[in-house]
C-alpha cells in the first residue's frame, strides 16, 4: 500500500499535525516503507485467532466510588499556557 501526498495530508489532518509542504513526499515514502513491513503479516492465516489487546489475561479491577481528591486547580493551572478566571483558554470556537 503506497502512501501518497494526499493520504499524508488526510492523516496529518486527522492527527492534527502541520506537515511542511516540502516534507510531505518524504513522509509519504517513509510511511510506505514502514507499512510495507506490516505486509509480512498478510501471508499468515489468522482467521481463527483472537486479537490480543493486552499482554496479560487479567481483568479490570473496579474502584470504590469515593471522592478522594479535591481541587488542585492552582497547581495544575500554574503550568498551563493560557488561563483566565479558572478556565483554560483556546482561540474562539464557533459551534
Amino acid at each position: 500500500m503506497a502512501v501518497d501526498a494526499k493520504v499524508v495530508a488526510q492523516i496529518a489532518h486527522l492527527a492534527r499535525l502541520h506537515i511542511d509542504e516540502n516534507l510531505v513526499t518524504e513522509y509519504a515514502s517513509e510511511m510506505t516503507r514502514v507499512l510495507a513491513l506490516a505486509e509480512a503479516m498478510d501471508d499468515v492465516d489468522t482467521d481463527n485467532v483472537e486479537p490480543m489487546a493486552h499482554p496479560t489475561h487479567a481483568v479490570q479491577r473496579l474502584r470504590e466510588d469515593a471522592v478522594k481528591e479535591t481541587g488542585q486547580r492552582d497547581a495544575f493551572q500554574a503550568i498551563a499556557p493560557a488561563v483566565e478566571g479558572g478556565h483554560y483558554l483556546v482561540p474562539q470556537v464557533i459551534e
Binding site: 483566565e84 478566571g85 479558572g86 478556565h87 483558554l89 483556546v90 482561540p91 474562539q92 470556537v93 459551534e95
Partner: peptide, 15 residues
C-alpha cells in the same frame, strides 16, 4: 464544557 461568551475572541474550557 466550553464557555463561548466570557472572553473576547477566546473560548474558555471548564473540565
Amino acid at each position: 464544557k466550553s464557555v463561548h461568551d466570557a472572553y473576547p475572541g477566546q473560548t474558555g474550557v471548564d473540565l
